[in-house]
Design a protein around this nucleic acid. Structure first.
Lengths: 143, 143
DNA sequence: CATATAGAGGATAAAAACATCTTTTAATAT
DNA sequence: ATATTAAAAGATGTTTTTATCCTCTATATG
């Protein structure tokens, strides 16, 4: 449903959302361990997220990655879109382009409205929302 | 959520469920086109499905693949299990083993109870059930 | 029994996903 | 200015998934 890469990205962004700020930047190598993703891989991934304005980066001494207030307002779907494109979240279980609510494939009802809801949630939920949940202890880190 | 291979298998099995019988066997090469899966690939896949008693095969002239009445009572989860094992249907969006209803990861509520329902549906729905839907025009082939 | 048919099985190949490594560029502090 | 820090970028390597090919075996039919 989501690629490993997207999962890694979500974990990294959440970690930054909770632990970083403009005054408290975090090095790529220091994100790797707590989120349990290979260092070289997450470094590369953070580059792409930075290029796409999901995270903010600063080079040089004292530099690192962090999430600006604006970054935190990113809806989750943006991260999924950048990394998985439309490859994963196509709503049909059998990847049939002709399948929809009015012309359902045989498996359609097994997943029903659910997947569409999931996508809607990704669109409506921001990083900040997830952090709120964590702060209110409705969900948990570390991831 | 499901691998391509499993999707191919589901499509092939559905095709056989609707079009084949013991008296009306279908060649691997004649399944390929209608379900839009490479011929060599579906042939190989049918072998594995046959070994696992999801489809029935007969060698030699007049042979081919078909679904016995018993085959049609196979629950969908059996096909998923054989091909994807437990790799895909692990319930956590972030693949966290520590994540569950009582200790949800930050993304947990985005998919909620839904995924568990999907798995339950796969367990409770048989090939025959899907064919019934198709016959009653509640869902559509070709896939 | 000979022969053609059609699946079974093993080997191989191509593509995508996942992961790592090395060099370059930019920024800071001294 | 210079040295140091840390991200950016590109090249490379590995593993998994997807796909194809070729030979072997079983069976029906004349």
């Amino acid at each position: 449903m989501l690629s490993n890469t997207t999962k890694y990205a979500l974990k990294a962004v959440l970690y930054l959302a909770v632990h970083s700020s403009m005054e408290r930047k975090i090095l790529a190598k220091d994100i790797s361990k707590p989120i349990n993703v290979p260092q070289a891989y997450i470094a590369k991934l953070l580059q792409e997220l930075s290029r796409n304005h999901i995270v903010t980066s600063v080079k040089g001494p004292g530099g690192g990655f962090f999430l600006s207030a604006q970054n935190k307002r990113t809806p989750l779907i943006a991260i999924v879109d950048i990394l998985d494109g439309d490859k994963r979240l196509n709503s049909c279980m059998l990847s049939l382009s002709a399948c929809n609510e009015n012309h359902p494939c045989p498996l359609h009802k097994l997943v029903g409205q659910t997947k569409l809801n999931f996508i809607k949630n990704l669109e409506e939920t921001t990083i900040a929302d997830l952090v709120e949940d964590i702060d209110a202890q409705r969900s948990f880190l570390p991831v």
